[in-house]
Computed example of a mutant assay.
Amino acid sequence: MKLIATCAAGIESVLGNEMKHLGYSANVENGRVCFDGDFDDVIFTNLWLRTADRIKIVLSQFTAKTFEELFENVKEIHWEDWLALDSAFPVNAKSQKSQLHNVPSIQSIAKKAIVEKMNQTYHRRTKFPETGSVYPIEVIINKNKVMVTLDTSGSSLFKRGYRLDKGGAPLKENMGAALVLLSHWYPELPFVDPTCGSGTIPIEAAMIGKDIAPGLKRKFAFENWQQVSCQKIKCQREKAKSKIKSDIELDISGYDIDGRMINISTVNAKAAGVLDNIKFKQMALKDFHTEKVNGIIVSNPPYGKRLSDRESVHKIYNQMGEIYRPLTSWSKYILTSDLQFEKYYGQIASKKRKLYNGSLRTDLFQYWGKKIR
């Protein structure tokens, strides 16, 4: 099957590297990585990919400029190979720069085509109950090119299942993992998030350090599909559990000025199975200091989107510069939507990388340390 792993804009290459390290030959495109595989790979990638949003099966690709063309091409798909009589098959659609641009109409026509094909296959004319397993279908149209897919994940893969509580503006788990991977952190190095909020970044770092599959504590849409073996799902989960490095020692710390957030971080880390691997402590940014060398700092500080917040946020950026700059052997990675960050930090970044935190454009300001041998 042709499969795609979708992701947030800006981290396609990170996802591509993940795929490569997992043994796949993949093509990186805007917002996704394409690869070939079977249902074993569907199970494996849903379990193991840290920066992906969803894993989808590509059912068909074609050009459509009219609703008639859309209807006939969707109807051509062998839906009987996928859907049982009672299968639920919700249809979602997206369209941009295309002659077919009315999303509700696209969804309606595609649904009608599927029902027509199913009626012909099963020789019936009554309404399908749609009370069984859910097969989420998506019709994506871009410049009149149509892609029809099945979503194997269900809920987005950032929903790991460990976040029992959160703060006001939580970072998605897969974005937290992307930041850790972009920092090129190794488990033997110190890792610090001085503005940890609900603990997402330290928790994702600990899961990487312990080799915990990010999808181990959640369910997926494909688990109820007739095409997927329950035994194979169980086998892959057990194999993933056996890979966890339970005895590894990690030097990971998460700090926040808000004691309530430290409590939330602790609860989430416990749910993720990494509480013993992270030191959480209530502490103001200005009080952070360390004698350690060759460490990694990854931080997602407040952005100050409201005018009333900007002065206090700029003060935080200034404190960061004063505290981080003397740590010359440490590499620092700060994510913010404030393009004036360097001005208040007091240093030009070694590199900037554009990322999207949800729909919000942000930049990852990277300051590379000079390691002490």
Rank of each mutant, 00 (worst) to 15 (best):
K97C: 01
Q120V: 06
V298Y: 04
H314F: 15
L179Y: 11
H289I: 01
V180K: 07
D53H: 11
K56T: 01
I316N: 04
N46E: 11
V274Y: 03
D211I: 05
R260P: 00
L22E: 06
G168K: 13
S133I: 01
A64W: 07
A213K: 09
K243D: 09
P301T: 08
D247M: 03
G161L: 02
K217E: 06
Q231V: 13
L150K: 06
H78E: 13
L179Q: 10
R237C: 05
I296P: 06
I372W: 09
A206W: 04
D86N: 14
Q340I: 00
Y162W: 14
I4E: 13
T45D: 00
H123E: 13
E18R: 10
D338S: 15
N294F: 02
R32G: 05
K305Q: 14
S13Q: 14
R260A: 08
N268S: 06
Q319A: 05
W82G: 02
L22I: 00
I233S: 14
K241C: 06
K343Q: 10
S155M: 07
F62Y: 12
H21N: 08
Y344D: 03
K219A: 12
R54T: 03
K172P: 03
T336V: 09
A178I: 08
K315V: 04
L189Y: 14
L49V: 09
G209M: 06
K94R: 04
D193M: 10
T45W: 00
Y255M: 07
I257D: 05
S308K: 13
E249D: 12
L164A: 07
S183T: 14
V267K: 08
T266H: 00
A206H: 04
V146I: 11
S312I: 11
Y317E: 08
F191Q: 11
L355K: 08
F341I: 11
T149H: 10
G321M: 07
I57S: 03
E188T: 13
